[in-house]
Design a protein around this nucleic acid. Sequence first.
DNA 1: TGCAATTTCTTTAAACTTCAAGCAATTGGC
DNA 2: GCCAATTGCTTGAAGTTTAAAGAAATTGCA
Lengths: 164, 164
Amino acid sequence: MILDSETKAVELPDDHGTELRLWLRLLTCTTLIEGEVRSRLREKFDVTLPRFDLMAQLDKVSDGMTLSDLSKRMMVSNGNVTGLVERLVESGHLDRRTSETDRRVQFIRLTKLGRAEFRKMAAEHEKWIADIFGDLSPKDIRELMRLLAKAKGSAQRSAKARSA
Amino acid sequence: MILDSETKAVELPDDHGTELRLWLRLLTCTTLIEGEVRSRLREKFDVTLPRFDLMAQLDKVSDGMTLSDLSKRMMVSNGNVTGLVERLVESGHLDRRTSETDRRVQFIRLTKLGRAEFRKMAAEHEKWIADIFGDLSPKDIRELMRLLAKAKGSAQRSAKARSA
DNA sequence: TGCAATTTCTTTAAACTTCAAGCAATTGGC
DNA sequence: GCCAATTGCTTGAAGTTTAAAGAAATTGCA
């Protein structure tokens, strides 16, 4: 143990091991849960996770969303969304129509079928998530929410500093 | 607001909203950081995240690892690892040799080049992560570690129960 | 021993993903 | 109005990923 002049424990200047371990744990945890959700979606509804995620974004709004909005909210590339939407229009879950005022813009909406199917899946999905986090107390959840918000803020600060 | 007989706020029996919000926040946080790490790896070292992750697994051991070990540790499919290893052998970062006692098994190792390049990247990577989590106090980190461990355990319990 | 089950790895098809380049439309000076 | 910059979206190439099926080798048990 290393102590400073006032006899408090201090870190070595470049020991960044704890942050790295935190990141690996965060990643493991997310990957584990994501894999579980992916399996269940495929098994029960024969749907992929990206499609579910995209429909989840659209379910939040009634009047549709542009491709750019979707890619920002899903934090994936534009080209990615183009392909996903294409396949979901093909399967009858989505509906696209071009903006009247800006012919570059496409508004994407859930069709009646798409919304109905999504709602069924979402109800199950919510139960799965509740079970997956079932061992956490309400207090644990509040603390995690708080600390993750702080981590997110920190990551955004770091990303912004780099790109500046 | 719903109150129980002792006048404390209670949740509706199947309100699983808090767990869902927790999951979304966890996912957002991880996606954000992962994207940032991916960008920096590409920008500074022209390497993809999956390749970095694979080399990170191999760097932990001196005598190599089988493809199955790799796929378990990375939590990805077997076929996925086959392709990644193939490309990394091609580029001279990895080395494969067949087990003498079991001809199905391939031991994969970092080459001298591979290890040298990885070490350089890893040192930078560790600093990036430290910066990304820079706003968190040591106590925040400890708490997050603890709660994520609990979440992981809970998720594993849930996954196991389903597959049983 | 014999052979069914298991394990290790590869292959295949389809989907997902990013990045970079490019096209079309709009916007914002001037 | 003109035109450079920006915005919204698509395309193409390369790579990653999964799920499923299959090949090869080993194991275990009757």
